[in-house]
Design a binder for these strands. Structure first.
Lengths: 217, 217
DNA sequence: TGTCAATCTTGACGATGACAAGACTGGAGG
DNA sequence: CCTCCAGTCTTGTCATCGTCAAGATTGACA
């Protein structure tokens, strides 16, 4: 968990908190995991941190700005996860594609709160996606498209255009991630490990036909 | 659009609205499409309908109850769409599976507001899924699993268990639907028609291996 | 016509996001 | 050591929201 960090309450009697901005973000993530997006209120965060109700406003213009920051950090970590997965995978483009897909799902398992904000409507309501956020999210998609292009070029990939291949793969892993985070997938796969294994099988069967584990029926 | 209906404002001077309950649901859907989930407030709906701010409370205990009702209606329409797609499809189980998947995506295209409430965190925050809602959503999944089972039995379906086949298919169509509703897919496919066509291709390449143009490996 | 349950209104309360104005803190420069 | 000041936080306030309680209006039925 490279992202989570200890959250420090203000030392009572001390006027300054130390790093309220950081603490607000971390606490928001914690609250999202515990009680959902709707439970994130600036006042609740302030209470948790032992700080006045208006203190958060000095670090984030409004509630939306906090979510934008969370999403931006999330996308940065997300891109890193995808890229490092691609880098450490075998040189075979199809294997890289599988690695990226699995990294996508794994990120959702490990950072559900970030994903909720990034995709789950945490933003998008008041909607202004600032440039930094937009750039990071597009970078994430480009990693996928580039690898898909390479895979398509190197092997006789599954049918369809590169566009379809990339979007289809994206949809598969995105769907798996969402169904896990929102709950439904937990009824089919009880533990994260089981779910991740299933994800690996499904990704393999979509991308890397050659590596598909022997049909076990 | 079998769901949308005209929304009637209260005739001024008349004390009763006529069918405020229905109007609240329909107006909520309209607001969601126009301004997102967060814009749905009981007071705003009341204003739109020319009714006092507390009137909605007599039809839905709280905001959550309204969303529950919207979701329940959504799942009913959803199940109907899936089942009727399966019924009208060719008798080949694989073709039926494709038809169901495409119906899933098409439902999302045609009823984005419902889907936002059903899957997009409209509920699940305050969370109590009442039995009626739970039952409908499980019915939807069962349609998919049953057809997948039949497909698996009849043909040498793709590798893996029925569980994986059903969940993989679900993930693919769910992912496509979400990426369309949340926006990202619109950058790849400009119009609903283009998107739907791509969905059909991807679904076919996942489910109906026999119909896949290029054999893999 | 009289009654009554359903429906809607008015008024109020606590909580939230946001704004304004003032108080505290710690470091830079005299 | 003292003073000043930008950054940080607090207090106080407002409009809006969801929710509750109590009362007013309506239409249907006896």
């Amino acid at each position: 968990m490279p992202i989570a960090k200890p959250v420090r309450r203000k030392r009572p009697g001390h006027y300054h908190h130390g790093d309220l901005r950081r603490a607000l973000i971390d606490t928001a993530l914690r609250v999202i995991e515990e009680d959902g997006l709707a439970a994130v209120t600036t006042r609740a965060l302030a209470r948790r941190l032992g700080v006045s109700h208006a203190a958060p406003a000095h670090h984030f213009r409004d509630r939306e700005a906090l979510f934008v920051e969370v999403a931006t950090e999330g996308f940065q970590a997300f891109v890193n996860a995808l890229e490092s997965a691609a880098a450490t995978a075998a040189s075979d483009p199809n294997a890289r594609l599988c690695a990226i897909g699995l990294a996508y799902v794994r990120f959702a398992i490990e950072h559900p709160a970030h994903v909720r904000v990034m995709f789950g409507g945490g933003l998008r309501e008041g909607v202004r996606w600032p440039p930094a956020l937009k750039r990071e999210s597009e970078r994430a998609y480009r990693v996928l498209v580039d690898t898909a292009t390479a895979a398509r070029a190197s092997t006789g990939a599954p049918s369809g255009s590169v566009q379809d291949l990339a979007f289809g793969g994206w949809s598969l892993v995105h769907g798996m991630a969402m169904l896990w985070i929102d709950g439904p997938a937990r009824q089919t796969y009880a533990t994260p490990a089981q779910f991740e294994a299933a994800a690996a099988r499904l990704i393999a069967s979509m991308f890397c036909c050659s590596e598909r584990p022997a049909a076990k029926d």
